[in-house]
């Protein structure tokens, strides 16, 4: 068996929430105002993730499937070690890095090259490390001739290319990708796929959360289905997708 990169043992995450009764502004404005001044907010605990156990081995590519708000991004941040689990144990071996925010460290007034440095620094890379990465970043993003122009002259696609290039040039042992990786034009998606294949060849792991099932099918081998913060299915990607579709259909049917 290959090396275990990450092991989550019954991890949960709960956070305190302060809920103002928003809807009262429409239905009962007086109540809304008195609540605001008397700080009568509803305090409660939200369980974002519940009792999740999973394992990632080297070379494995896992897709996280689930509706909006099922906890996909939260799970990724938990696995990246940013959120600490409230209960349960998370052990990782090797480096774990995530791509969560496309605009991280991006400054519209600064040039593409400057943004490479700023994003790289904010991702935790050292100065000289970034300098070494630059030829590769230029190559992957195909932005050589525009790299001295300020970022506000870039199209959305160009910004995406730059962000992805910076984030994936140095591959961590386990890479976590959130939603927006599925955007971009077809040529770019092919490049992303190629790069992810390289990652896995070097025995790195990948976890990806996206609604783009085509991309997921192309990249992933295993699937995990999340529903309201619970892990409801894990297995082969095709089975997981089938399970999820069945679920969606069942919910739709019950509403009729």
């Amino acid at each position: 068996m290959s090396e275990v990169l990450l092991k989550a043992d019954r991890i949960s995450l709960s956070v305190p929430v302060f809920q103002p009764s928003d809807r009262q502004l429409m239905t009962n404005p007086l109540q809304f105002i008195t609540d605001l001044y008397l700080s009568r907010t509803t305090r409660g605990i939200a369980y974002l993730l519940n009792d999740i156990s999973m394992e990632v081995r080297a070379g494995e590519r896992i897709g996280i499937i689930g509706a909006n708000g099922a906890g996909k991004s939260t799970l990724l941040r938990l696995l990246a070690g940013i959120y600490k689990p409230t209960t349960g144990n998370l052990t990782t071996s090797g480096s774990v890095k995530g791509l969560f925010d496309i605009s991280l460290g991006m400054n519209l007034e600064a040039t593409g090259l400057e943004n490479i440095y700023m994003r790289g620094l904010q991702m935790g890379y050292g100065f000289s490390e970034i300098r070494e990465m630059i030829p590769d970043i230029l190559d992957f993003s195909e932005l050589e001739k525009d790299i001295e122009k300020p970022l506000n002259t870039y199209s959305t696609g160009m910004r995406l290319r730059l962000a992805v290039a910076v984030s994936t040039t140095r591959s961590p042992d386990l890479l976590l990708l959130d939603e927006w990786i599925g955007t971009g034009d077809m040529r770019f998606r092919d490049k992303v796929k190629e790069r992810m294949d390289q990652l896995v060849e070097q025995a790195h792991g990948l976890i990806i959360a996206t609604h783009n099932t085509v991309l997921m099918k192309a990249l992933c081998t295993r699937g995990i289905v999340l529903e309201g913060g619970n892990l409801v299915y894990q297995g082969d990607l095709d089975d997981a997708l089938a399970f999820y579709e069945e679920e969606v259909r069942a919910v739709a049917a019950s509403k009729k």
Binding site: R77, A80, I82, D101, S103, Q122, G124, Y125
Partner: peptide
């Protein structure tokens, strides 16, 4: 916020 939620810093 973005830097806190990225974990690189």
């Amino acid at each position: 916020r973005a830097q806190v939620l990225q974990g690189g810093m």
